[in-house]
Lab assay of single mutants.
Amino acid sequence: MSRVPSPPPPAEMSSGPVAESWCYTQIKVVKFSYMWTINNFSFCREEMGEVIKSSTFSSGANDKLKWCLRVNPKGLDEESKDYLSLYLLLVSCPKSEVRAKFKFSILNAKGEETKAMESQRAYRFVQGKDWGFKKFIRRDFLLDEANGLLPDDKLTLFCEVSVVQDSVNISGQNTMNMVKVPECRLADELGGLWENSRFTDCCLCVAGQEFQAHKAILAARSPVFSAMFEHEMEESKKNRVEINDVEPEVFKEMMCFIYTGKAPNLDKMADDLLAAADKYALERLKVMCEDALCSNLSVENAAEILILADLHSADQLKTQAVDFINYHASDVLETSGWKSMVVSHPHLVAEAYRSLASAQCPFLGPPRKRLKQS
Protein backbone atom coordinates (compact mmCIF):
# COMPACT_ATOMS: atom_id res chain seq x y z
CA MET A 1 0.00 0.00 0.00
CA SER A 2 1.46 3.32 -0.98
CA ARG A 3 2.08 6.04 1.60
CA VAL A 4 -0.39 8.90 1.65
CA PRO A 5 1.35 11.82 -0.09
CA SER A 6 1.67 15.22 1.51
CA PRO A 7 -0.64 17.85 0.04
CA PRO A 8 0.85 20.30 -2.44
CA PRO A 9 1.67 23.72 -1.03
CA PRO A 10 -1.42 25.93 -1.52
CA ALA A 11 0.55 28.51 -3.48
CA GLU A 12 1.34 25.86 -6.11
CA MET A 13 -2.22 24.56 -6.36
CA SER A 14 -3.55 27.67 -8.02
CA SER A 15 -2.55 31.14 -9.08
CA GLY A 16 -5.83 32.38 -7.59
CA PRO A 17 -6.71 33.28 -4.00
CA VAL A 18 -5.11 31.39 -1.10
CA ALA A 19 -7.43 30.19 1.68
CA GLU A 20 -6.54 30.45 5.36
CA SER A 21 -7.09 26.71 5.83
CA TRP A 22 -7.21 23.70 3.55
CA CYS A 23 -8.06 19.99 3.39
CA TYR A 24 -6.53 17.34 1.15
CA THR A 25 -8.49 14.09 0.71
CA GLN A 26 -6.68 10.97 -0.42
CA ILE A 27 -8.82 7.99 -1.48
CA LYS A 28 -6.56 5.00 -0.95
CA VAL A 29 -6.53 2.34 -3.66
CA VAL A 30 -4.70 -0.99 -3.44
CA LYS A 31 -3.69 -2.37 -6.85
CA PHE A 32 -2.51 -5.91 -7.54
CA SER A 33 -2.51 -8.42 -10.38
CA TYR A 34 -2.95 -12.17 -10.88
CA MET A 35 -2.07 -14.53 -13.73
CA TRP A 36 -3.98 -17.78 -14.27
CA THR A 37 -2.86 -20.41 -16.80
CA ILE A 38 -5.24 -23.21 -17.81
CA ASN A 39 -3.32 -26.08 -19.43
CA ASN A 40 -4.97 -28.32 -22.04
CA PHE A 41 -7.75 -25.80 -22.47
CA SER A 42 -9.26 -27.59 -25.46
CA PHE A 43 -10.10 -30.54 -23.16
CA CYS A 44 -12.42 -28.46 -20.97
CA ARG A 45 -15.94 -29.84 -20.74
CA GLU A 46 -18.11 -28.02 -23.23
CA GLU A 47 -21.45 -28.01 -21.43
CA MET A 48 -23.00 -24.57 -21.26
CA GLY A 49 -22.62 -23.14 -17.77
CA GLU A 50 -19.66 -25.39 -16.91
CA VAL A 51 -17.44 -23.54 -14.37
CA ILE A 52 -13.69 -23.55 -13.78
CA LYS A 53 -12.30 -21.60 -10.81
CA SER A 54 -8.76 -20.46 -10.09
CA SER A 55 -7.11 -20.74 -6.70
CA THR A 56 -7.74 -17.84 -4.32
CA PHE A 57 -5.46 -14.81 -4.33
CA SER A 58 -5.07 -11.48 -2.55
CA SER A 59 -2.95 -8.34 -2.61
CA GLY A 60 -0.55 -9.74 -0.02
CA ALA A 61 -0.04 -12.14 2.86
CA ASN A 62 -1.79 -9.86 5.36
CA ASP A 63 -4.78 -9.03 3.18
CA LYS A 64 -7.95 -10.76 4.42
CA LEU A 65 -9.81 -10.11 1.17
CA LYS A 66 -9.63 -13.29 -0.90
CA TRP A 67 -10.53 -13.41 -4.59
CA CYS A 68 -10.66 -15.94 -7.38
CA LEU A 69 -11.38 -15.97 -11.11
CA ARG A 70 -14.29 -17.92 -12.59
CA VAL A 71 -14.46 -19.06 -16.20
CA ASN A 72 -17.34 -20.54 -18.16
CA PRO A 73 -15.54 -22.04 -21.20
CA LYS A 74 -18.80 -22.27 -23.16
CA GLY A 75 -20.63 -19.29 -21.78
CA LEU A 76 -22.92 -18.76 -18.84
CA ASP A 77 -26.26 -19.24 -20.58
CA GLU A 78 -27.95 -19.62 -23.96
CA GLU A 79 -27.21 -16.00 -24.88
CA SER A 80 -23.46 -16.43 -24.32
CA LYS A 81 -22.94 -20.04 -25.45
CA ASP A 82 -20.61 -18.95 -28.29
CA TYR A 83 -18.41 -16.98 -25.88
CA LEU A 84 -16.07 -17.56 -22.98
CA SER A 85 -17.44 -15.89 -19.83
CA LEU A 86 -15.02 -14.49 -17.24
CA TYR A 87 -15.74 -13.16 -13.74
CA LEU A 88 -13.93 -11.87 -10.63
CA LEU A 89 -15.39 -13.45 -7.47
CA LEU A 90 -14.96 -12.18 -3.89
CA VAL A 91 -14.44 -15.41 -1.92
CA SER A 92 -14.07 -14.03 1.61
CA CYS A 93 -14.36 -10.57 3.12
CA PRO A 94 -14.23 -9.37 6.75
CA LYS A 95 -16.27 -6.28 5.81
CA SER A 96 -19.88 -6.06 4.73
CA GLU A 97 -18.77 -4.95 1.25
CA VAL A 98 -15.87 -3.61 -0.81
CA ARG A 99 -15.69 -1.65 -4.04
CA ALA A 100 -13.24 -2.61 -6.78
CA LYS A 101 -12.44 -2.06 -10.44
CA PHE A 102 -10.95 -4.83 -12.55
CA LYS A 103 -9.35 -5.47 -15.92
CA PHE A 104 -9.09 -8.81 -17.75
CA SER A 105 -6.82 -9.68 -20.66
CA ILE A 106 -5.37 -12.73 -22.42
CA LEU A 107 -1.61 -13.19 -22.78
CA ASN A 108 -0.69 -14.32 -26.28
CA ALA A 109 2.24 -16.51 -27.35
CA LYS A 110 4.63 -13.56 -26.91
CA GLY A 111 3.38 -12.83 -23.40
CA GLU A 112 1.61 -9.66 -24.59
CA GLU A 113 -1.77 -8.51 -23.27
CA THR A 114 -4.57 -8.84 -25.82
CA LYS A 115 -8.36 -8.68 -25.82
CA ALA A 116 -8.42 -6.49 -22.70
CA MET A 117 -11.74 -5.57 -21.10
CA GLU A 118 -12.14 -3.53 -17.93
CA SER A 119 -14.92 -2.33 -15.69
CA GLN A 120 -16.00 1.24 -16.26
CA ARG A 121 -16.48 1.92 -12.55
CA ALA A 122 -15.77 0.46 -9.12
CA TYR A 123 -18.37 -2.26 -8.52
CA ARG A 124 -19.81 -3.20 -5.12
CA PHE A 125 -18.68 -6.68 -4.07
CA VAL A 126 -20.06 -8.67 -1.14
CA GLN A 127 -18.80 -12.10 -0.10
CA GLY A 128 -19.78 -14.64 -2.74
CA LYS A 129 -20.60 -11.95 -5.34
CA ASP A 130 -18.90 -11.79 -8.72
CA TRP A 131 -18.69 -9.26 -11.54
CA GLY A 132 -17.31 -9.72 -15.01
CA PHE A 133 -18.14 -10.22 -18.65
CA LYS A 134 -20.63 -12.79 -19.92
CA LYS A 135 -19.28 -12.29 -23.46
CA PHE A 136 -15.56 -11.86 -22.80
CA ILE A 137 -14.29 -13.40 -26.07
CA ARG A 138 -15.82 -15.46 -28.87
CA ARG A 139 -14.89 -19.13 -28.64
CA ASP A 140 -14.18 -19.50 -32.36
CA PHE A 141 -11.72 -16.58 -32.23
CA LEU A 142 -10.05 -17.98 -29.10
CA LEU A 143 -9.69 -21.49 -30.53
CA ASP A 144 -8.37 -20.31 -33.92
CA GLU A 145 -4.64 -21.17 -33.88
CA ALA A 146 -3.91 -18.27 -36.23
CA ASN A 147 -4.73 -15.81 -33.43
CA GLY A 148 -2.04 -17.24 -31.13
CA LEU A 149 -4.11 -17.06 -27.94
CA LEU A 150 -3.67 -20.72 -26.96
CA PRO A 151 0.06 -21.50 -27.32
CA ASP A 152 0.64 -25.18 -26.54
CA ASP A 153 -3.09 -25.35 -25.69
CA LYS A 154 -2.58 -23.01 -22.70
CA LEU A 155 -5.01 -20.20 -21.92
CA THR A 156 -3.30 -17.53 -19.82
CA LEU A 157 -5.58 -14.93 -18.24
CA PHE A 158 -4.23 -11.76 -16.63
CA CYS A 159 -6.32 -9.87 -14.08
CA GLU A 160 -5.63 -6.47 -12.54
CA VAL A 161 -7.68 -5.46 -9.49
CA SER A 162 -7.97 -2.02 -7.85
CA VAL A 163 -9.65 -2.17 -4.43
CA VAL A 164 -10.97 1.08 -2.97
CA GLN A 165 -9.89 1.56 0.66
CA ASP A 166 -10.89 4.22 3.18
CA SER A 167 -10.27 7.88 2.46
CA VAL A 168 -7.87 9.97 4.54
CA ASN A 169 -8.17 13.71 5.18
CA ILE A 170 -5.14 15.90 5.81
CA SER A 171 -5.90 19.46 6.84
CA GLY A 172 -3.94 22.49 7.90
CA GLN A 173 -3.65 26.24 7.83
CA ASN A 174 -1.61 28.51 5.63
CA THR A 175 0.91 30.96 6.93
CA MET A 176 2.26 34.02 5.21
CA ASN A 177 5.87 32.94 5.74
CA MET A 178 5.91 29.77 3.69
CA VAL A 179 9.37 28.25 3.35
CA LYS A 180 10.03 26.19 0.25
CA VAL A 181 12.95 23.79 0.62
CA PRO A 182 14.68 23.21 -2.73
CA GLU A 183 15.03 19.70 -4.11
CA CYS A 184 18.23 17.81 -3.45
CA ARG A 185 20.56 18.11 -6.46
CA LEU A 186 23.34 15.90 -5.11
CA ALA A 187 23.28 13.52 -8.08
CA ASP A 188 23.47 16.40 -10.58
CA GLU A 189 26.27 18.08 -8.65
CA LEU A 190 28.34 14.91 -8.38
CA GLY A 191 27.68 14.28 -12.06
CA GLY A 192 29.11 17.72 -12.75
CA LEU A 193 32.33 16.77 -10.96
CA TRP A 194 32.66 13.76 -13.27
CA GLU A 195 31.78 15.59 -16.48
CA ASN A 196 34.04 18.57 -15.77
CA SER A 197 36.92 16.57 -14.22
CA ARG A 198 37.12 18.99 -11.29
CA PHE A 199 39.31 18.23 -8.24
CA THR A 200 40.21 14.76 -9.54
CA ASP A 201 42.91 12.65 -7.91
CA CYS A 202 43.19 9.50 -10.05
CA CYS A 203 43.31 8.47 -13.68
CA LEU A 204 41.41 5.58 -15.24
CA CYS A 205 42.90 4.26 -18.50
CA VAL A 206 40.41 2.48 -20.79
CA ALA A 207 41.46 1.25 -24.24
CA GLY A 208 43.93 4.09 -24.64
CA GLN A 209 41.52 6.76 -23.35
CA GLU A 210 42.15 8.49 -20.02
CA PHE A 211 39.38 9.54 -17.63
CA GLN A 212 39.96 11.65 -14.53
CA ALA A 213 38.00 10.64 -11.44
CA HIS A 214 37.78 10.88 -7.63
CA LYS A 215 39.07 8.00 -5.51
CA ALA A 216 36.72 8.76 -2.61
CA ILE A 217 33.61 8.53 -4.79
CA LEU A 218 34.80 5.38 -6.58
CA ALA A 219 35.66 3.70 -3.27
CA ALA A 220 32.34 4.67 -1.68
CA ARG A 221 30.33 3.27 -4.58
CA SER A 222 32.30 0.15 -5.54
CA PRO A 223 33.88 -2.40 -3.16
CA VAL A 224 36.28 -3.35 -5.96
CA PHE A 225 37.62 0.20 -6.37
CA SER A 226 37.71 0.51 -2.58
CA ALA A 227 39.98 -2.54 -2.33
CA MET A 228 42.28 -1.15 -5.04
CA PHE A 229 42.82 2.16 -3.25
CA GLU A 230 42.78 0.88 0.33
CA HIS A 231 45.58 -1.65 0.08
CA GLU A 232 49.17 -1.19 -1.03
CA MET A 233 48.40 -2.00 -4.65
CA GLU A 234 49.99 -0.38 -7.66
CA GLU A 235 46.76 1.50 -8.40
CA SER A 236 46.92 3.11 -4.96
CA LYS A 237 50.58 4.08 -5.27
CA LYS A 238 50.35 5.58 -8.75
CA ASN A 239 46.72 6.79 -8.60
CA ARG A 240 46.32 5.18 -11.98
CA VAL A 241 44.05 2.25 -12.88
CA GLU A 242 44.33 0.24 -16.10
CA ILE A 243 40.96 -1.14 -17.24
CA ASN A 244 41.32 -3.58 -20.12
CA ASP A 245 38.05 -5.50 -20.40
CA VAL A 246 35.42 -2.74 -20.66
CA GLU A 247 34.69 -0.71 -23.79
CA PRO A 248 35.01 3.08 -23.33
CA GLU A 249 31.32 3.78 -24.02
CA VAL A 250 30.25 1.12 -21.52
CA PHE A 251 32.79 2.44 -19.01
CA LYS A 252 31.42 5.99 -19.33
CA GLU A 253 27.90 4.72 -18.69
CA MET A 254 29.12 2.83 -15.62
CA MET A 255 30.87 5.95 -14.32
CA CYS A 256 27.73 8.00 -14.89
CA PHE A 257 25.90 5.53 -12.64
CA ILE A 258 28.65 5.64 -10.00
CA TYR A 259 28.41 9.43 -9.78
CA THR A 260 24.66 9.97 -10.27
CA GLY A 261 22.85 6.68 -9.68
CA LYS A 262 21.48 6.89 -13.23
CA ALA A 263 22.30 5.11 -16.50
CA PRO A 264 20.43 6.95 -19.28
CA ASN A 265 21.76 4.70 -22.08
CA LEU A 266 21.31 1.41 -20.22
CA ASP A 267 18.84 -0.08 -22.71
CA LYS A 268 21.38 0.22 -25.55
CA MET A 269 24.12 -1.71 -23.76
CA ALA A 270 22.45 -3.70 -20.98
CA ASP A 271 24.42 -6.90 -21.67
CA ASP A 272 27.86 -5.25 -21.59
CA LEU A 273 26.87 -3.03 -18.68
CA LEU A 274 25.74 -6.10 -16.73
CA ALA A 275 29.22 -7.57 -17.12
CA ALA A 276 30.84 -4.32 -15.93
CA ALA A 277 28.45 -4.01 -12.98
CA ASP A 278 29.24 -7.58 -11.96
CA LYS A 279 33.00 -7.02 -12.16
CA TYR A 280 32.90 -3.85 -10.04
CA ALA A 281 30.22 -5.12 -7.61
CA LEU A 282 27.66 -2.45 -8.48
CA GLU A 283 24.65 -4.44 -7.31
CA ARG A 284 21.92 -1.90 -8.06
CA LEU A 285 23.23 -1.28 -11.58
CA LYS A 286 23.40 -5.04 -12.07
CA VAL A 287 19.72 -5.46 -11.15
CA MET A 288 18.79 -2.50 -13.39
CA CYS A 289 20.50 -4.32 -16.28
CA GLU A 290 18.67 -7.54 -15.39
CA ASP A 291 15.37 -5.67 -15.51
CA ALA A 292 16.16 -4.18 -18.94
CA LEU A 293 17.19 -7.55 -20.34
CA CYS A 294 14.03 -9.19 -18.94
CA SER A 295 11.96 -6.63 -20.81
CA ASN A 296 13.67 -7.60 -24.07
CA LEU A 297 13.46 -11.38 -23.72
CA SER A 298 12.39 -13.04 -26.96
CA VAL A 299 12.35 -16.48 -28.54
CA GLU A 300 15.46 -15.56 -30.54
CA ASN A 301 17.62 -14.31 -27.63
CA ALA A 302 16.36 -16.38 -24.67
CA ALA A 303 19.26 -18.85 -24.77
CA GLU A 304 21.90 -16.11 -25.07
CA ILE A 305 20.38 -14.21 -22.14
CA LEU A 306 20.32 -17.38 -20.03
CA ILE A 307 24.03 -17.88 -20.71
CA LEU A 308 24.74 -14.23 -19.85
CA ALA A 309 22.75 -14.45 -16.61
CA ASP A 310 24.58 -17.61 -15.56
CA LEU A 311 27.99 -16.14 -16.37
CA HIS A 312 27.42 -13.09 -14.18
CA SER A 313 25.37 -14.71 -11.39
CA ALA A 314 22.34 -12.60 -12.32
CA ASP A 315 19.87 -14.81 -10.46
CA GLN A 316 16.69 -12.85 -11.12
CA LEU A 317 17.43 -12.63 -14.84
CA LYS A 318 18.29 -16.33 -14.94
CA THR A 319 14.96 -17.26 -13.34
CA GLN A 320 13.05 -15.10 -15.82
CA ALA A 321 14.96 -16.56 -18.77
CA VAL A 322 14.28 -20.15 -17.66
CA ASP A 323 10.57 -19.37 -17.13
CA PHE A 324 10.41 -17.75 -20.58
CA ILE A 325 12.06 -20.77 -22.20
CA ASN A 326 9.61 -23.09 -20.45
CA TYR A 327 6.64 -21.08 -21.70
CA HIS A 328 7.94 -20.94 -25.29
CA ALA A 329 9.82 -24.24 -25.31
CA SER A 330 8.70 -25.49 -28.72
CA ASP A 331 9.88 -22.27 -30.43
CA VAL A 332 13.08 -21.67 -28.43
CA LEU A 333 14.35 -25.21 -29.07
CA GLU A 334 14.43 -24.45 -32.81
CA THR A 335 16.70 -21.38 -32.50
CA SER A 336 20.39 -21.33 -33.30
CA GLY A 337 21.08 -19.89 -29.84
CA TRP A 338 19.58 -22.93 -28.13
CA LYS A 339 21.42 -25.35 -30.41
CA SER A 340 24.71 -23.59 -29.63
CA MET A 341 23.96 -23.69 -25.91
CA VAL A 342 23.42 -27.46 -26.06
CA VAL A 343 27.08 -27.76 -27.07
CA SER A 344 28.66 -24.94 -25.06
CA HIS A 345 26.60 -24.93 -21.84
CA PRO A 346 24.96 -28.34 -21.36
CA HIS A 347 24.41 -27.68 -17.63
CA LEU A 348 22.04 -24.82 -18.53
CA VAL A 349 20.12 -27.09 -20.88
CA ALA A 350 19.77 -29.56 -18.02
CA GLU A 351 18.53 -26.80 -15.68
CA ALA A 352 15.95 -25.66 -18.22
CA TYR A 353 14.67 -29.21 -18.73
CA ARG A 354 14.44 -29.82 -14.97
CA SER A 355 12.43 -26.64 -14.55
CA LEU A 356 10.16 -27.55 -17.46
CA ALA A 357 9.58 -31.02 -16.04
CA SER A 358 8.68 -29.69 -12.58
CA ALA A 359 6.30 -27.13 -14.12
CA GLN A 360 4.48 -29.81 -16.11
CA CYS A 361 4.46 -32.41 -13.30
CA PRO A 362 3.35 -30.62 -10.12
CA PHE A 363 2.62 -33.97 -8.43
CA LEU A 364 6.36 -34.63 -8.10
CA GLY A 365 6.54 -32.26 -5.11
CA PRO A 366 4.59 -29.71 -3.11
CA PRO A 367 3.65 -26.48 -4.88
CA ARG A 368 6.35 -23.84 -4.63
CA LYS A 369 5.39 -20.43 -3.32
CA ARG A 370 6.44 -17.50 -5.44
CA LEU A 371 7.35 -14.86 -3.17
CA LYS A 372 14.32 -6.99 -4.17
CA GLN A 373 15.46 -4.39 -5.40
CA SER A 374 17.47 -2.20 -3.19
Rank of each mutant, 00 (worst) to 15 (best):
S226E: 14
F32A: 07
L371C: 15
F199M: 15
L84P: 01
S167P: 01
D323Y: 10
V179R: 07
E189K: 03
F32W: 12
F43E: 13
S197G: 15
S33W: 15
L308H: 10
P223W: 13
T200K: 01
N147T: 07
L69P: 00
C68P: 00
S313C: 03
D152A: 10
D130A: 03
L157A: 07
V71C: 10
F102P: 00
G172K: 03
K64M: 11
Q127P: 04
E145Y: 04
Q127H: 10
A213G: 13
Y353F: 09
M341V: 05
A263S: 03
G128C: 13
S59F: 08
A116P: 03
E97L: 09
M178N: 05
N169S: 03
A314R: 10
V322I: 09
K134L: 07
E230W: 13
D82P: 04
S105F: 04
P223C: 15
M233D: 12
A359S: 02
E247M: 07
T175C: 02
L143Y: 09
V224T: 15
P346V: 03
N62D: 06
A11Q: 08
G191P: 11
D77I: 09
F251R: 00
P10Y: 10
G60N: 09
L86F: 14
T260S: 08
R70A: 09
E304C: 10
K74F: 12
Y280V: 01
G208R: 09
D201C: 11
C23W: 02
S355G: 04
D291S: 10
L293W: 08
C184A: 03
R198A: 15
M1T: 01
V250T: 06
R139D: 05
K339F: 04
S330K: 11
C256M: 01
N147A: 09
E20S: 09
C203T: 12
M178K: 01
A220W: 06
F257P: 00
V161M: 12
L356T: 11
D77L: 10
G111S: 08
L143W: 13
A219I: 14
L84R: 00
P248T: 04
L333R: 05
E118Y: 01
S344M: 08
L157W: 14
V18W: 09
G337Y: 05
G172P: 03
V161P: 08
I305L: 10
A359R: 01
L273N: 00
L293V: 14
F158L: 11
M178V: 02
P8C: 07
E50I: 02
S197P: 01
A352F: 07
V241G: 04
A357P: 09
W22L: 07
L90Y: 02
D331I: 12
G16Y: 08
E351V: 04
G208P: 15
K31D: 10
V342S: 14
P362G: 15
D331E: 13
G132T: 00
S21Q: 10
F32E: 11
Y353G: 00
L143M: 05
S298W: 12
N244M: 03
E145A: 09
E234I: 15
L84M: 09
N39Y: 05
E46I: 04
K31L: 01
L190H: 05
A187P: 08
E242D: 01
W67K: 00
T260Y: 01
C202N: 09
L150Q: 10
E235Q: 06
Q209K: 12
Y83D: 05
A207S: 14
I38Q: 06
E112Y: 12
C205A: 15
Q165G: 08
K154L: 11
V164N: 04
I325V: 06
S54Q: 00
L348N: 03
C289I: 12
D315W: 15
F257V: 05
D310V: 02
I307F: 02
R124K: 02
L107G: 15
K318M: 10
K110Y: 14
G337V: 07
P346C: 08
R284M: 09
Q127D: 13
K110G: 09
V349Q: 14
E145D: 07
K369S: 03
C93R: 10
K215A: 13
H347Y: 05
L371Q: 15
G148W: 09
S119D: 01
T319Y: 12
A359V: 05
S33C: 11
S105R: 07
L317T: 12
A314L: 04
A116R: 09
F133D: 08
D77M: 03
S171D: 08
D278H: 05
C205K: 11
K103F: 11
L150N: 02
